[in-house]
Design a binder for these strands. Structure first.
Length: 269
DNA sequence: ATGGTCGACTCTCGA
């Protein structure tokens, strides 16, 4: 089973390049982020014509996640649970979890669009946006902890808006105060991983440093000023069946590209 | 020479 994560930065603008890549790469599951549309305007039919089942959790203008799957969905669960019922309802569409049946049983996969959080500071204190990011990461940790008790293959795939280490950015010194690279961001990310999740890309030995995102501005792509922020976090039952992982960065040089590129994990599941 | 991005939607924000 090949499982991909791809932040498309508006699904409707990507409807020339995205189907081309799907036909080339033929992933079984694709977790999309930043679809930037409500469910009713998602191009469901176009993906069904390519052989995919479609699950969408959309939002007007911003955010929005979806999952395309060649296998039928056994479960579709939008939204990350709130930590306390007293918390305000979360209107931001950033989480969509599905279950499909693999060769040896259920495989649980989530499409995640973790908040960016910039600007991190405002008037010398953490901004509301950065606090929302940290709170959201706490919610993700709590939910992941619950999902791990199922002892199933679990892949939390998405745009984490986290640069895990200085090796994952072209110049770490320029990112020191950024919400994607702050110590509190790393702490929250590591707390999720330490529950028992392994990043598929980091599991593979001998990999070259590769990025998954290049800004549209300042010639970032030709200068290779990228960052690695799209990740596949895997339970033991998933990582034990990981065969390979790759980043299809060539799509960044095509017409009308997203600023992100797909990351794909190949699992014997 | 001194600007150089994109997308959704409104005339500005978010990334």
């Amino acid at each position: 089973m090949e499982i991909a994560s791809f932040n498309v930065n508006s699904v409707r603008v990507r409807m020339h390049g995205l189907p081309v890549w799907l036909k080339e790469a033929k992933p079984d599951i694709v977790c999309l982020q930043e679809i930037k549309t409500v469910d009713e305007n998602f191009p469901t039919q176009a993906f069904e014509d390519l052989g995919y089942n479609v699950a969408v959790h959309g939002q007007k203008s911003y955010n929005g996640v979806a999952v395309l799957s060649k296998l039928p969905f056994e479960e579709v669960n939008p939204r990350l649970p709130l930590l306390k019922s007293s918390d305000d309802a979360d209107e931001q569409a950033r989480y969509l979890e599905v279950v499909v049946s693999g060769k040896t049983g259920p495989v649980r996969i989530a499409s995640i669009y973790l908040p960016n959080g910039n600007p991190a500071m405002e008037d010398g204190v953490p901004s509301a946006k950065y606090q929302y990011k940290l709170d959201w990461m706490a919610r993700l940790k709590s939910h992941a902890q619950k999902l791990l008790t199922y002892e199933e293959p679990l892949i939390l795939a998405g745009d984490y808006n986290v640069i895990p280490s200085a090796d994952d950015v072209y110049d770490a010194s320029l990112w020191a105060g950024d919400a994607l690279f702050l110590p509190a961001t790393h702490a929250a990310y590591n707390a999720i991983k330490w529950l028992g999740l392994t990043s598929a890309y980091e599991q593979v030995d001998g990999r070259a440093h590769q990025y998954t995102y290049w800004d549209y501005q300042r010639g970032a792509r030709p200068k290779n000023h990228g960052i690695r922020i799209d990740h596949l976090l895997c339970s033991a039952q998933a990582i034990d069946h990981l065969k390979s992982v790759r980043i299809d960065d060539y799509v960044r040089d095509r017409e009308k590209p997203s600023d992100h590129v797909p990351i794909i994990g190949v699992f014997d599941l």
